[in-house]
Design a protein around this nucleic acid. Sequence first.
DNA 1: CAATGTAGTGTTGTTTTTACACTAAATACT
DNA 2: AGTATTTAGTGTAAAAACAACACTACATTG
Lengths: 252, 252
Amino acid sequence: MTEFNDFFKSAFTVDNVIFGFDEGDLKILLIKRGEAPYKGKWALPGYFVYPNEDLDTAAKRVLEELTGLRNVYLEQVQTFGAANRHPFGRVITIAYFSLVKISDYNLQPASIAQKAQWHSIVKVNDLAFDHIEILNACFQRLKWLVRTRPVGFELLPPQFTLTALQHLYEAILETDLDKRNFRKKILSMNLLIDLEQTQEGVAHRPARLYQFDRDKYDQFRAEGLNFELKESKKKEAKRAAAHRKALLHAAH
Amino acid sequence: MTEFNDFFKSAFTVDNVIFGFDEGDLKILLIKRGEAPYKGKWALPGYFVYPNEDLDTAAKRVLEELTGLRNVYLEQVQTFGAANRHPFGRVITIAYFSLVKISDYNLQPASIAQKAQWHSIVKVNDLAFDHIEILNACFQRLKWLVRTRPVGFELLPPQFTLTALQHLYEAILETDLDKRNFRKKILSMNLLIDLEQTQEGVAHRPARLYQFDRDKYDQFRAEGLNFELKESKKKEAKRAAAHRKALLHAAH
DNA sequence: CAATGTAGTGTTGTTTTTACACTAAATACT
DNA sequence: AGTATTTAGTGTAAAAACAACACTACATTG
């Protein structure tokens, strides 16, 4: 075992791309670095993984320390390990991305507030380390995810209008969507609860408010994965396909 | 910087899920461990990443040492880092998967040949470390990838029949496909060169042989990513969508 | 020359996607 | 009061993609 000692001189960190959505803009939360290296530059929030800490736990910890939020969508994306990416030594980083409702985010103690800020994703261009690369990978992943699963709701306040949802999809996919087709698609998924209320205080026709039906979604997912043995192969395949489609291609 | 010293006591490895296809069966290459821990168990081929080695390089190295192959499809999948996953200390592993043509694989020196063997993926069930978990993640990724990009060809010999290709898809997706629909779909992608030859030495009607048209594919991809500024937004969107579809859903 | 075994081929009904333009409902302004 | 402004909300038709389905063709083997 002593022969392996040379390998046990590395460290790893988690870095977190925290997406939020506000004022029609897709944003990420960045921290201004207070120390070397890259002092004064904006960077993704991240930190070393503790010796006895699982990776997912570390990502959750970093997120919670910064935003005070738990139970948000969090997913591992990719690991970056160029040999020279960190000036302190060999440090690889496991990138995570998370989706938070900016409405839930109450800026933490002033000490942090000064350092942490939301940045429009389209304007971010110069980050510490290889963080731009990490951001790009996570953004790609988000684009894929939003077409695949109804994660958009994670970024909106609990009640929202269809137009707001469409704007969110447009911001993520960086494209325009057809209003009527978008609504048809979304409503056909049957994952929205029509709150039968409308907006107030807007200087135009107020829109209906909807809520994401998480119970239905969870149930739906459970069914999709729970291949019971009763059905014929054909029927099963059909149902699975229908299920896939209902969720896939949330837009267009 | 001394405050960070505690973090620099970890190691990381790469583990490689090497897929091959033979006799209608999807297989992976496993190694029988000769040393503790898990001596005598089958494991994914993997090794520590050297101090100055990039992760991708390490994965390539492990693959080449074992198979002698370069220039194969290789992709990072996921990092596994449960705090207690390795009995020697804190070791996280970055999982890669690769696709090799078994026809290219000439078993290496006898010393390795005894230890490395292809295993039918459906029969693999007990591996060292958390390697079953890693295998599952990579298999999932392969299922997704095969629907998304024409990677199937990476697993077949240079010349193949459409039936062989279909069997490959069926093995990966673990489902049956309709022969006529499959052929229509594949041929409509226009990525196959009809060699205008047929099989020889088979005891039945011989099938036509095809070859993957890599040039066309590369060109196709390049166009797909190269958003020129001449087109109107609408036309561009249309083309991009058409492109996506041509590649997506290679089957069904 | 019959038996066996795989290769190869088209059509039709259904579903999904796309393109597209007007009316409705609220406030703001005069 | 009434007109302007702004966003909400709605249906249809044509095109494309998908799914289901069964027979003939061509080679070898016995």
